[in-house]
Amino acid sequence: MNDLNLDDEIRQKIIEMMNQGSSTLEIYKKTCEILFFQHGIMPTPTRLYALVRKGSMTTPGKAIQEFLAQQREKGRIELDIPEMPESLKTMFTEALKETWRVASQISSTKVREQNEQHQRELNRFTQQIEQLDIKNQALESRIDEMKQILAERDIYVSALQKEVGEGKTKLSLESNRLAIATDQCEELKKQLDKARHDFIAESHRMSQEHEQGLARLKDHENRALMEIERERQAANKAIKDVTNALKLREDELRQRDNKFLELASELEVSGRDLSAAKTKLEMTTADLQTIRISFEEQTRLNGQLKARLEQLSARHNITHQKNSRRKTMKQSHD
């Protein structure tokens, strides 16, 4: 039966208890008994609340505590066998109580060691009882031998034999209870192993998801670094192009400056003969004016190129700062 059919069956029983007018706490306690005794499932507050869906979240916890207290109360053993030595009775009772406590502890390897120790104690007690049986048989033989002279003690001896038989019956019943408790302990250990296996599987799944998340983050970081590198290369290329253009402009200005100096030299030579070179001076003056206009235009273009170069440099610095911040964030995340 799968979990879904099992829950439906248990809910049907819960509905019947609700129709009978049972209290909420009593319904939770009976649900604990159904899970534990009929299906071998240790009840938990979450499982109980999911099945009953009534009352507050504290009610399932209280029901589980009372259920376990009832089971511990049922597990208390008191031996009342006449003629059994008090020391043996006390030791055997304490051993059986300790066995019940071990059955309640389901989460450590020490349970197996304690079970083995209790089994050795039980074997020792069984041997003592067998020795008592042997002594009892010897006593019965002695009674048979003295039957003629101690006829009045026959009733007492018969009663003693009956009590010994009842003691053996009680001992057998307690041994059966011990076997049942041992079986329950083994079943609880199996449930613990299953829960441990489920926990390990869930931990492995979460670890894989964490590794996949780290891989995706690494991929995003690599793509971002590649994009930053492309922007940096583009900025460097633009800066290089502007620098080359500026250099060309400076060469042209230098050439025109040289030409201006040559013209000035010619003007100085021509000044010696101003009258004869008036027409040539006017032409030279016009050329000089044209060169000055061109020089001013080149100066204006040079200023624009320098402004463009400063913008590209600022953009390059911003890109470099972004790259540094992303590397810092990546190192902090690692």
Rank of each mutant, 00 (worst) to 15 (best):
E187D: 04
Q148L: 12
N236E: 00
Q105E: 09
L192R: 14
H210E: 09
N136E: 04
A235S: 11
C185S: 13
D183F: 07
K190F: 07
K54C: 03
R254V: 03
L51V: 01
I64C: 04
T284H: 14
A307I: 04
Q212N: 06
R230G: 00
K89Q: 11
N236M: 03
K13T: 10
E297Q: 15
S158D: 10
Q70E: 15
S294Q: 15
P60W: 00
T44S: 15
L4D: 10
R196M: 13
I149G: 01
E33A: 15
S265V: 01
T93I: 01
N236F: 01
V52W: 02
V111T: 11
L96H: 00
I134E: 07
Q331R: 14
T299S: 08
I10T: 09
T59V: 15
I129P: 00
E174Q: 06
A224Q: 05
L305H: 09
R249W: 05
Q298T: 06
Q117N: 05
P43D: 08
L281A: 11
S294W: 06
D251C: 02
S332L: 15
D3E: 14
I149D: 05
T90E: 12
A224P: 02
E152W: 01
I200M: 13
D7L: 01
E262H: 15
L79N: 00
A286Q: 12
A201Y: 06
R47A: 09
Q289F: 13
K278T: 13
I200P: 05
Q184M: 08
E166T: 11
L150C: 04
W100G: 06
I155V: 09
Q38M: 13
Q311W: 04
F67P: 05
E145P: 01
Q127D: 07
E186M: 05
R196K: 09
E297I: 02
N244W: 04
Q105I: 08
K74Y: 07
D183M: 07
S275Q: 05
S23K: 13
L248E: 08
E83I: 01
Q289A: 13
E268Y: 11
A195H: 12
V164M: 00
I129E: 06
N5H: 10
P60A: 00
E187K: 12
L48T: 05
L68K: 10
G75S: 12
K30D: 04
R223N: 05
K13L: 15
E268R: 10
T279S: 15
T285M: 05
S207F: 04
N176T: 03
S294E: 15
E266C: 00
R153G: 01
K322P: 01
D144K: 09
H204C: 08
L288C: 14
F36P: 04
K89I: 05
T243L: 00
I134Q: 07
R249G: 05
V102R: 04
W100S: 06
T24I: 15
P85F: 03
A195F: 12
Q184S: 04
Q70A: 14
D8V: 12
N2K: 14
M329Q: 15
D144E: 08
V164L: 02
